[in-house]
Write a protein that binds this DNA or RNA. Structure first.
Length: 725
RNA sequence: GGGCGGUUAGCUCAGUUGGUAGAGCACACCCCUCACACGGGUGGGGUCACAGGUUCAAGUCCUGUACCGCCCACCA
């Protein structure tokens, strides 16, 4: 028996070494033959370090890929990182500001990008190391980055083809402007906060016939209409009439329109319509051919009007307007209310809706050759079951989101990211590649990071080239990710893949929940309750962390983790270590037969291992393990990793150790040599099988023990055959 | 306002197609027995939120109620 077994199991002495051996062996890459099984790693943001949520995802993915690899698939798990445009730029800008007191405009575009480039390179190196520490058996030879040359080329092509298909357009539309980040953001990057506010009831002028209610009186200088409900008898006589007024020094022209979007029961039942600074008002203006041009707030969230409001911040302007209303006797009511404020997720800035010239993806227009809109193409594969979402109820959430989906604004006014591939010269514009002639200027905006990561399932496989990988591995099989990016990412991947390849990006979507701390609180920087996966691995080992993350972690459900749970599984690792020690000791003592492999006989013919005497197949112990094998296999096939992990744990500790080993002691200590040998062989076979079943979950310790077995059926447990019954 | 979850042992959670309630931790008592004290043995503890219904049988299916949570949504 190996000397190492005399000491308690120490993951620190084994994990790094084993990972290196695996990686060197080349078995992380899919083998040449066999049915393909592919999974893309959700690329972590290149903004620093991995958190415990990443560890959960990586563990689940690694369990799946290891299982499939052992089942004989050409298993591809492709790793990568995401440039995470806004998040990354914001982080680097913040650091520069803190250290040097400089802003991005002090540095200039080129210098800032250089600095971000350095930061991202470091971040990526850290992340790659962390992924290894967790034992992730991904194919590093195919590693991708959302902003490397191949991915840039894919995104350019995608942009060009979508433009040619008429699905990308540039237009002045109302967008979510983040004055703090000085950029547009998508609907999904907004978080709503409930804050106390005031609801003012006012008139534009003394002789104006209708009072309106608003929480933002300062925007009223941008009003072009008052909308009332068509059925509202109170105001019917005014519909169609037009009025002029001077509101707080600003001349305004107001038309009364009837629109069903107005709730007659709210406020006065009349809404001041500010098309340039409100989504719903923009739509009302559309329906009544009203002007969108009256812009009264600029990108710095200051008033873009003349008079006393000139250049005032919106909150200052509000006070001025209210004073003016009071002085003029136009304020009829002032009530306390709660209002939902839209804020930018990344910067916390209060969103100011503004019309701006932006690039959009049209989700309602028919895709040429498909006879359907992108929205429909996103909907159908999920509805038909071609794409399966686990847990199933997220399909409803997905449909609900799609129903409310608007055109996707894909341009961002930040510098880090892939620049919009459009070049202008005077009135001319060229999409795709920079023209050879001189005088062309590229669009200054960059693309939403999800435009690039939306192409992840195929840009990673070499698209637009018709590569072997693309042919073999797309559509991919499983996408494992957190439910919090179902809309951001999963939906966009379906859109992109349907457009670019006219096929689904993946067959199964497995959504894991959010990891919370022991008190059930979300992990956050401000709470300081982060559990650093690498630190934890250093303390308890990757195997223990993986088990703690996976056991009982049902898809779509949030889960809690604390050190006690992880410690429990590090004890389990030690338990397994001692089980191995005992069995190897006993088999060495009594001696068990190892059948020599003969030419022409494959390892599989030594079912289930070279030391397995066929007569043991009928024993109660072996049959019990066969049942477990069947169960675990079925659980993994049906994505119940959380159940499978627990079952094996329970088997190893409470069946194999507590019962079988204890029952074996008298037999092994008796005089009957044949009985002793037979029992030792049985234990040896049980151990071998248990190691295989446990390997996807606890890859390091199982591999380490496997390497000490007197007879192995493969070079590494990682590529040994999964027992199939 | 719309949608989606959750409510099972003191705590954290499982419970796959309906068939007499499970795990881990914690707790109580015993044991340093020659694989392991990072251990072993024994044991206590639940009217499965509530109210109806379907069924021979419901934690599991249906209806409703309460509480907790999440997501979406600019009643201005």
């Amino acid at each position: 028996m190996d000397e190492k077994f005399t000491k308690p199991y120490d993951p620190r002495a084994t994990e790094a070494r084993i990972y290196t051996e695996w990686e060197k062996s080349g078995h992380f890459a899919p083998k040449k033959d066999g049915e393909p099984f592919a999974m893309m790693m959700p690329p972590p943001n290149a903004t620093g370090v991995l958190h415990i949520g990443h560890a959960l995802g990586l563990t689940l993915e690694d369990i799946l890929i290891r299982y499939k690899r052992m089942r004989g698939y050409a298993a591809l798990w492709l790793p990568g990182t995401d440039h995470a445009a806004i998040a990354t730029q914001a982080k680097v800008e913040k650091e520069i500001n803190k250290k040097e007191g400089k802003h991005r405009h002090d540095l200039g575009r080129e210098e800032l990008l250089k600095r971000i480039g350095v930061f991202v390179k470091e971040s990526r190196a850290i992340i790659e190391k962390q992924i290894r520490v967790l034992g992730a058996s991904c194919d590093w030879s195919r590693e991708a980055f959302t902003l490397d040359a191949a991915r840039r080329s894919a995104v350019n092509t995608l942009f060009k083809r979508m433009s040619e298909a008429g699905l990308i357009y540039r237009g002045s539309r109302i967008i979510n402007w983040d004055p703090r980040g000085q950029t547009t953001i998508s609907d999904d990057e907004i978080v709503h906060e409930e804050r106390p506010g005031k609801l003012y009831t006012l008139r534009y002028a003394k002789d104006f016939p209708i009072a309106i209610a608003t929480t933002r009186p300062e925007t009223k200088v941008g009003d072009v209409a008052v909308a009332v409900h068509p059925e509202d008898a109170r105001y019917r006589e005014f519909v169609g009439k037009e009025y002029d007024a001077v509101f707080c020094d600003v001349p305004i022209h107001i038309k009364i329109v009837a629109d069903a979007a107005v709730d007659p029961a709210f406020g006065t039942g009349a809404v001041g319509v500010t098309p340039a600074h409100s989504y719903t008002d923009w739509e009302i203006a559309d329906r009544h051919q009203l002007s969108h041009e009256v812009v009264v707030i600029n990108e710095l969230a200051k008033m873009a009007v003349s008079g006393r409001l000139k250049e005032k911040k919106t909150n200052e302007a509000r006070e001025i307007v209210v004073e003016w209303l009071k002085a003029e006797g136009l304020l009829e009511k002032e009530e306390e209310t709660l209002q939902n404020i839209a804020t930018a997720e990344r910067t916390g800035g209060v969103i100011e809706p503004l019309p701006k010239l932006q690039w959009f993806v049209d989700v309602n227009k028919e895709v040429p050759g498909r006879g359907k809109s992108l929205k429909q193409l996103m909907l159908e594969p999920v509805r038909s079951g071609q794409i399966r979402i686990i847990p199933e109820h997220f399909e409803k959430t997905y449909f609900h989101w799609l129903e409310n989906l608007r055109d996707w604004c894909i341009s961002r006014q930040i510098w880090y990211g892939q620049q919009v591939p459009v070049w202008y010269k005077g009135e001319e514009a060229v999409v795709g590649e920079e023209p050879a002639s001189e005088g062309w200027v590229q669009d200054e905006d960059t693309l939403d990071t999800w435009f690039s990561s939306g192409a992840w399932t195929f840009s990673t496989l070499g698209w637009p080239e018709a590569t072997e990988d693309l042919k073999k591995f797309h559509p991919t099989d499983v996408l494992e990710t957190g439910y919090d990016i179902l809309f951001f990412w999963v939906a966009r991947m379906i859109l992109m893949s349907e457009f670019a390849l006219a096929e689904i990006p993946f067959r199964t979507v497995y959504l894991h929940g959010i990891i919370r701390d022991a008190e059930g609180r979300k992990i956050s920087k401000s709470l300081g309750n982060n559990i650093d996966p690498v630190e934890t691995v250093g303390k308890f080992g990757a195997d223990a962390l993986r088990m703690a993350l996976v056991v009982g972690n049902t898809p779509g459900m949030d889960s809690r983790i604390d050190e006690e749970k992880i410690r429990g599984y590090s004890r389990f690792a030690n338990k397994l270590w001692n089980i191995a020690r005992f069995i190897l000791e006993q088999s060495a003592q009594v001696g068990i037969r190892i059948r020599e492999s003969a030419p022409g006989r494959s390892a599989e013919s030594y079912y289930p291992s070279p030391t397995f005497p066929p007569e043991l197949a009928g024993t109660r112990e072996w049959k019990g393990l066969e049942v477990l094998t069947k169960d675990v296999t079925k659980d993994l096939d049906e994505f119940r990793m959380y159940v499978a992990a627990e079952k094996i744990y329970h088997y190893v500790w409470h069946e194999l150790a507590d019962k079988i080993l204890e029952e074996s002691k008298p037999i092994l200590n008796a005089a009957d040599q044949a009985a002793r040998q037979s029992r030792a062989a049985l234990l040896r076979a049980l151990l071998g099988r248990a190691l295989k079943l446990l390997h996807p979950f606890m890859p390091f310790i199982t591999e380490e023990i496997y390497q000490s077995l007197p007879a192995k059926d493969a070079e590494f447990l990682m590529i040994a055959n999964w027992p199939v019954i």
